[in-house]
Amino acid sequence: MKLGKKERVIIIGCGRLGSKLAAMLSEKNYQVVVIDKKESAFTKLPESFGGFYVKADGTDLDTLKYVDIEETAIFIACTESDNMNSLLAQIASRIFNVPNVYVRFEDVDKEKLIKGFNIQGIFPFNLTLDVFNEIIFGENKENEK
């Protein structure tokens, strides 16, 4: 797949988060490929989206090679299943050595599955707690440090 010279991003899961990230990164001039099992998921992408979308199973190694995962700078796993995201992130980081791998986990315990690997977990639960903390107690994590 010829994608041009811009920095490449692969996003697996075109849900609310995946589609927004795809649009945002595409606007910031990244070459974005978003993958989802369901064709209907891509309707969430805005009309202005300038990247590629591929209907496929994101855990399929051939699909990932087809979208040039070996040349990819950023990989984001944000399907609706934590276990699927853990598998995807490990494929990207441990099999294909993608330098920047991000994964969204609903369950904070899933961090234990990616410990020690070059994978960055993002936990909406922790972020929500932080915001509540800030609203209720006026404490900001950044200020504490």
Binding site: T59, S81, D82, N83, M84, S86, L87, K112, L113
Partner: peptide
């Protein structure tokens, strides 16, 4: 039935 679930279970078992 989910392959990804099986992987997570095995990795927890081994690592934790």
């Amino acid at each position: 039935h989910q392959d990804a679930d099986n992987l997570a279970i095995c990795q927890y078992a081994k690592n934790c």
